[in-house]
Design a protein around this nucleic acid. Sequence first.
DNA 1: GGCCGCCTGTTACATTCTCTCACAATTCGT
DNA 2: ACGAATTGTGAGAGAATGTAACAGGCGGCC
Lengths: 232, 232
Amino acid sequence: MLGFQTSETHSFRPQSSRISISPPTGSTLDERMAYASVRKLESKEHVFCEGDPRLHVFRVEEGVIAIYKTLCDGRRRIIDFAYPGDLIGLGALEEHILSAQATCTSKVRCLSASALEAFAETDANLALKLYKSVCQELAATRSLLVTVGQRSAVERVASFLLALHRRSGDADGSTVTLAMRRSDIADLLGLTIETVSRTLTKLRTMNVIEVEQGGTTVTLCDVARLADLANE
Amino acid sequence: MLGFQTSETHSFRPQSSRISISPPTGSTLDERMAYASVRKLESKEHVFCEGDPRLHVFRVEEGVIAIYKTLCDGRRRIIDFAYPGDLIGLGALEEHILSAQATCTSKVRCLSASALEAFAETDANLALKLYKSVCQELAATRSLLVTVGQRSAVERVASFLLALHRRSGDADGSTVTLAMRRSDIADLLGLTIETVSRTLTKLRTMNVIEVEQGGTTVTLCDVARLADLANE
DNA sequence: GGCCGCCTGTTACATTCTCTCACAATTCGT
DNA sequence: ACGAATTGTGAGAGAATGTAACAGGCGGCC
């Protein structure tokens, strides 16, 4: 969920006249990405697991990747869903401290972690991009923390739907696609799958949302009301 | 909670032979900090509030600063406690999106945000430091997310005590100081003050902790058991 | 094609936990 | 020492969970 848009042009201080000239070949993130290998993932397949050596940084191309941590008793706490354009695997050191798993058929692009970070050592521009990206991820994680910290299940689910809508649903208006299982949503929000299901039903009977065909597509009928329920 | 140790020397890639030579004066963060003004805060006094223009970045010198967000209905969700050495105010743009409030008598050092970030544009080393710092904060926020996402009150309180112990309690063994009110802990963990109080009592009767004088000092009698209760 | 098992999602009911509201006990500041 | 603020404790209400049963979709298999 880093929101690392490699094509974004506004620098950290837009008023600055400094422009970093890209070295001739393979230097910008876009170029590096273009040469990076693509890996296709089936649903529930792992990109990496806790404890794996951190060899690569990945950019999501298609699908949704769940970033999660496994607790001692086997429960799974999803920290974040990564969507196309997001970078995953940044910030860790020698080993991954979280696991990453596809919630549906997905594609990721692999980039050497050491090469990226070595290059950032000499390029303030790239380093700042990394900084900005992690800042965005931090903001998203904080937002999720606020959501999960809220008591009621309705608030959490409503917040989740709104966040999904804000992120993915600019185009087709008020329809969002849940590209993950109920169990994934439950593990993200700290609820059970039954509670998620019940809450969606509740929102449906309140005429705030409509759920279609197998529960993968949700239409937000009353965004204002949903925002009210989410306390936002 | 950025854990931005300005004196840390290991670079992002320790094996790299590149060393950034600091410009003659006022360039390193330590030097800038030395000249920065110190502001003293009483308990419950604000460092900044949501919506304030982001003029400064602050480093906590003494005390504890609660970083929080206010919800529509007036509830307060604490995102983080910042301890001495931590930087706060990074990552935002024009305005602060969170509030920062002292939980006890504290001191912070003020640093111009624009100056710091302008300097980072030309110094990959500083930019990388910022990057690493935010990564640390991200890890801490994720850790808190795992804690809050856990269902039971015992797990949350136990996790909180352990986190506090890991952070502050290297020196005096197993004693941690709660430099904040019960209400602050409750708003961090998504519980009520009554539940926090009851849970501490429960842990006390289980002989896992000891609480002394007004509940500000806690001794962890059985760290292993506490970790078990916290599911860590 | 039809049968079967597997997985996911939904719903109902009993249980358990936290929250709300009440008030007592303690600490702290003046 | 007094009053205000904070903390601790109890009883009842409410909400989420756990358990269980059931419906629907999907693929394998005969």
